[in-house]
Computed example of a mutant assay.
Amino acid sequence: MNLFPIMTSSAIVSAVRRSQRSLISAVALGVVAAALTACGSTKPQPAPLENLTPTQKVSVLWSQRIGSADGFTNLAVTGTTVAWATTDGQVVSLDATTGATRWRGQVDAKVAAGVGSDGRYAAVVTTENELVVMDQGKVLWRDRQPGRVITAPLVAGERVFVQGVDRSVRAYDVKDGRWLWQYQRPGSDPLSLSAPGLLQPYRNTLAVGQGSRLVGLDPTRGSVLFDLSLGTPRGTNEVERLADLVGPGARVGDSICVRAYQLSVGCVDMSRGRLVWTKPQTGAAAVGASASLVVGADSADRLSAWRTDSGDVRWRVDRFQYRGLSAPTVWGELVAVADHDGYLHVLSAADGRTVARISLDNTLSAAPVLIDNILIVATRSGTVYGLRAN
């Protein structure tokens, strides 16, 4: 079984240094946002919606209105259940096939990062930097974090892992909140992107992003198993060289495929701790992947698809330019990606043709997930949808 046994160790980083780095991260985000948006008069106009005669039927299997989510959120999948958290502190677990509520809880605070869940236990971090852990909706314990957190905690192997904006990682016992270890890569980048990072499990390895590097950690001790680069950032200053790994990564068998912000897309063989391939591409959203295809949008919302095994280009489309695309999801023989206007575009995975389009009630608040071929999406209006391609 791929469960993490419990063992403690220590690796403490100065709280002062973490606070300074968190402040720098926030400043960097403002600079980056200003550079990306430029001035209002010259901002590129979104491409108009294409005329479409659907050739694929996509239907809403179920939907449930829960509560608004205007920050960074995550859909946490375990078996046939999915957990989600709203900005006002609601945490729910839903049956992916019916949308029925399995359990519901309230953390009594606004949520800044969430949710992580293994089906039973769930964890979020509040806007006051408090980690809150629940057992089927009932609050178990709370712990104040030393800095800002916007990446959803990870719950796995009876542990809770928390990644700060400075990309430090802390581990706790899920049942009693006992602190286990902390890790931060020596000589890490002075700036970090104020957006969710990479933090996810692979068997008995914890994959974490540290700048443009993917580090495999032993989850029992926080020790390094491997450390791989997805490219060397280039630029005249630290902001231009900012290249954090963007979460969530796309798990495909023994590989995790991931984006390095404004730098590259690549796949890592986690079983051997080696880089399979990397391709240059600017962009800010996570990628989607299947056994045959990796899909991601660049900074102008041009979609590219690469072969999972080699990184060779399969197809590219530019008809969604500047529409604010979400992370895509490879949905069997289809690719699903949403835009800022709340449209979900469904493409053929074979050649990138648009085969369907549906309108949601808002833009997405989290990367879509797939459970038993049901696409689960959550919007900023607080609606969670279960969609089926017929």
Rank of each mutant, 00 (worst) to 15 (best):
Q321H: 06
D339H: 03
R314C: 05
V335M: 02
S310K: 08
T308V: 02
G324Y: 04
T329Y: 00
R323A: 05
D339C: 07
A305P: 10
H340S: 15
R302H: 06
A338R: 01
G324D: 08
W315V: 11
G332F: 04
Q321S: 15
A338L: 00
A327F: 01
V335H: 04
V335W: 06
R314Y: 07
V330T: 05
A327S: 14
T329D: 08
A327L: 02
D309V: 10
R302E: 14
F320I: 01
R307N: 08
F320R: 11
H345V: 11
D318S: 12
D341I: 00
D301P: 09
V317P: 04
G332I: 02
S326Q: 12
L303M: 14
V330F: 08
R316L: 09
Y322S: 13
D301T: 08
D309A: 13
V337H: 00
D312F: 00
R323K: 11
L325K: 11
R314N: 06
H340A: 15
D341W: 02
A327V: 00
H340E: 13
F320H: 15
V335K: 01
Y343T: 10
R323T: 13
S326C: 05
D341V: 01
W306M: 09
V313S: 14
L334T: 08
W306S: 03
A327N: 01
V313W: 02
H340C: 04
G332T: 06
P328S: 11
G332R: 12
G324S: 07
G342H: 06
H345L: 03
H345A: 04
V337E: 05
